[in-house]
Design a protein around this nucleic acid. Sequence first.
DNA 1: ACACCTAATGAAACCGGTTTCATTCTCACA
DNA 2: TGTGAGAATGAAACCGGTTTCATTAGGTGT
Lengths: 347, 347
Amino acid sequence: MPVPTIRLVAREAGVSQATVSRAFSQPELLTPATVEKVLGTAQRLGYVPNQVARALSTGRAGNIALILPDVANPFFSALMRGAQAQAYKRGYATFLGDSDETAHLEDVLLAKLAAQVDGFVLASPRLDEPLIRKHAARKPVVVINRDLEGIGRVLVDTGPGFTAAVVLLAGLGHRAIAYVGAPRTSWSSQQRARAVTAAGAAHGLSVVQIDAGRPSHEAGRDCVAGLLEAGVTAALAVDDVVAQGIMAGLAERGLSVPGDFSVVGCDDIIAATTYPPLTSVNAHCALAGANAVDLLLNGLANPTPPVEGHVIKGELVIRGSTGPAPAPAPAPRGRKAPAEPDPSSRK
Amino acid sequence: MPVPTIRLVAREAGVSQATVSRAFSQPELLTPATVEKVLGTAQRLGYVPNQVARALSTGRAGNIALILPDVANPFFSALMRGAQAQAYKRGYATFLGDSDETAHLEDVLLAKLAAQVDGFVLASPRLDEPLIRKHAARKPVVVINRDLEGIGRVLVDTGPGFTAAVVLLAGLGHRAIAYVGAPRTSWSSQQRARAVTAAGAAHGLSVVQIDAGRPSHEAGRDCVAGLLEAGVTAALAVDDVVAQGIMAGLAERGLSVPGDFSVVGCDDIIAATTYPPLTSVNAHCALAGANAVDLLLNGLANPTPPVEGHVIKGELVIRGSTGPAPAPAPAPRGRKAPAEPDPSSRK
DNA sequence: ACACCTAATGAAACCGGTTTCATTCTCACA
DNA sequence: TGTGAGAATGAAACCGGTTTCATTAGGTGT
């Protein structure tokens, strides 16, 4: 028994296929009696409109795709949750593409999915700007955490949160702090680094910057040696996963948080579940995902969508991983701290 | 500039559209020189075969859908990562459906996506058996962690791991332990409960069973009161998230792990990153996801696929959350432990 | 040199819908 | 009663691929 098609229904109901089509997509164009007759026979035959065929002729797939660097990272899984739920609410299905943190895979996924979706949400894209623009020229695109003029974007502004964190640490008596970041390609990380550097300078703190590479638990743990060598008493990490790694590395060395060292994370997804609970900057991940989808779908509805940017404010959530700076240790740990790059900048 | 179609490439390359089509789908039918020429011009024009059109004429969508209860749960995000990567490797794109732990949403997602996919992977479905079978009759389905005769399935057998955990705890001197599980609908949880009960009986331990409801950090923390009331000295949790919640609840009450209480988790995704690191049963989540996809796609390739079941063994990974039973406390904590439901079952 | 088989390619039908445009039918109004 | 506007419906083109079938070219065997 083959799947019934529109032509079969048409023949069976004694109407044209155009009528059947309209009975499903624009019933207001038909006599109620006709609609009823068509839907009746369709029901009887078990006919369901073929979504693929519909997509081909209308050019609308009813799908969107979400491309992100790493589903396993809690920031992105939370974001995805928000995005998928919102897309579902608005009648769209969601493709997932995991680029494994590589620009190339992002590019390939964009190209492969282009025909099947009405638009893309790119979360923290690793792709360089020209390529993003190339794809954006073909299909509507909304980027999350990347500031590209003329392309729809949702930005989570964690700068103020990091500033507040630095202020908090300064108030707790810390004098030397570190920012542990991700590679250059990450807009978020750069933004956070800037906030920390500026706030540190404003409050007379010395700031060391450390690059942890791909943000992971291990990366965080591995940079603890560097932190201690640098002689800082607190670290702000690019995200909670790295922050948790730092705490693990500290624990390995018998240092307690926040007694001996303070740690601040970002995203606030796993922060409440770590031990001790992390002081973290809330990034409202799920909201960002949902907003990106809304922006995208609103753009699809409007013929000439105003290119909007949507900014979400991330605020500091203070928990148990930050405390007073430890009293000056009886003896300095490790070799002497490296001199700051440019002390004059502090005056 | 419209998206290039097969006809444009054909005209540009001076061949027929049939030739272009074959250059992409069956290049062995063409002269290598022709293939090269066609692919060259296609590349130059930025042509990518339209998946929707292809799906319409072949009847194959080239997509699969992964339906799961909660993307934000690390077990599922790891599983998804494995599944998506494997699907991509084999040329399939992946839809994601998050059912938010509800059977109804699962049902709706299955129905909505059916037309656009060649098959489904259902991870830990909350749907009841008849409905799963109904959908499986329409489209190929592989389920993960649900044992349904006649339906392709991947099972992660964590029973032996939990048995080993109980043996470990018995060896450490624990006499009363608890299993903290999820609701009945979870096949995995029931399987684990059985293993714990059986192993407990075999080693003369008293076993209390507690239902935490939806498996979450909070749920774990909330059941700590019950654990202490029951007078147990160790808990095995349905997953790492709940286990971590239990540790948080213990820490709140000033109890140390593993000094005062031992905790065992399951899945081994976040286990290495918690503090203290969790002793956990490795569920090989990513592998399960990849295997499910393989099973599904192999089934699609074969006209009459043998309904296979694939079992993955989960083994115990011992870390820092398990230790010797605490010396009998000076005074029993809380009210007296409730009597076991049926003491006779232990003889 | 001729008949014949195979490999490479092209023309056109087809997948299952949507949509434009033409046609028919009604009914209100002058 | 004639006419024109508007509503209901149908015929056919179209979306962008795949695939069948026919055609042409290039060898091979005798």
